[in-house]
Design a protein around this nucleic acid. Structure first.
Lengths: 149, 149
DNA sequence: CCCAAGTATATGAGAGTTCAACTAAAAAGT
DNA sequence: ACTTTTTAGTTGAACTCTCATATACTTGGG
């Protein structure tokens, strides 16, 4: 009954696993080494930096930064300890919490960004032709549209 | 100086991050829920199952299962507790250790495989055209060849 | 033959992630 | 109004991962 993978699919699947893991490891290593944060924290800072007032409700932030709520909660607690983010209770919905990027947090992000982009290029874009980039975009968009809640 | 990403690259990059994370989360959730193991453990069992004698040197196993040596060491320790793997000192090189897949381990893998493949299809292959699969293979192979040690 | 350098693996601490439970507040029923 | 059900967010425990370090063996020079 099981629809096993044929040879082509096997090859593609294993290549996919290797490539995505290698890219993620490269990102994490670079950010950890040069900026002292994991990639997940970086994504949180990016999401906040792009929001109006550099602040966002926790649940929306979780969605934008592709994090579970629990993960985000823990992460923001750490980021708060470093002084990169602070929390503020919502006025309209008293259950809600808002995360705000501080100046220090913004500065940390700005300092980390160039090295990060460089790593993104090195590990992905420099390897691909423009057409492959288009193709990758389509593929990933299709997957995202199917899987995301 | 920094070569920032242009709009197309930004879109592709974010799609890539979403898609790969969604796929990985789906895999991990399915395996954890239905087979009580993370995807990394599954990959270790697969690598062992494909090796002659269902056994392999730790360092080669790490390479095949795309794991760091440290991660593998910890993982095999856990797998050993469950009785899915056992270790045997090498005869020729007394520093070396060999991991061996036990019958129970093979059975656990066999039991986990169908659900896992189903999830792989649902989250990736069912979403893509055959041409996209080819394209993805090429892209990932290129990335892998560049990044892997 | 002995010592320095390299290789194979293990281990412990610290950090991040997950899952399930928990609190608190809003919304929906009745 | 009062209870039930959702929704927002946090928390603690268990687990995995990473990084640095430690151990044990092997190899390559002198």
């Amino acid at each position: 009954m099981t629809r096993w993978l044929d040879d082509d699919e096997q090859r593609a699947w294993r290549a996919f696993l290797s490539a995505t893991q290698l890219v993620n490891e490269a990102l994490d290593r670079q950010l950890q080494r040069d900026a002292g944060m994991p990639h997940t924290y970086y994504m949180i800072l990016v999401a906040l930096s792009e929001a109006p007032e550099r602040s966002m409700r926790m649940s929306e932030l979780a969605a934008r930064a592709q994090s579970s709520q629990s993960r985000l909660s823990h992460a923001v607690a750490r980021l708060e300890e470093r002084g990169w983010v602070r929390r503020a209770r919502c006025s309209d919905d008293r259950r809600g919490n808002t995360a705000v990027l501080t100046e220090d947090g913004f500065a940390a992000l700005a300092a980390a960004a160039p090295g990060h982009v460089e790593e993104v290029r090195r590990s992905l874009f420099d390897v691909l032709t423009p057409e492959q980039v288009r193709s990758l975009d389509e593929i990933c968009t299709a997957v995202r549209n199917t899987l995301e809640r």
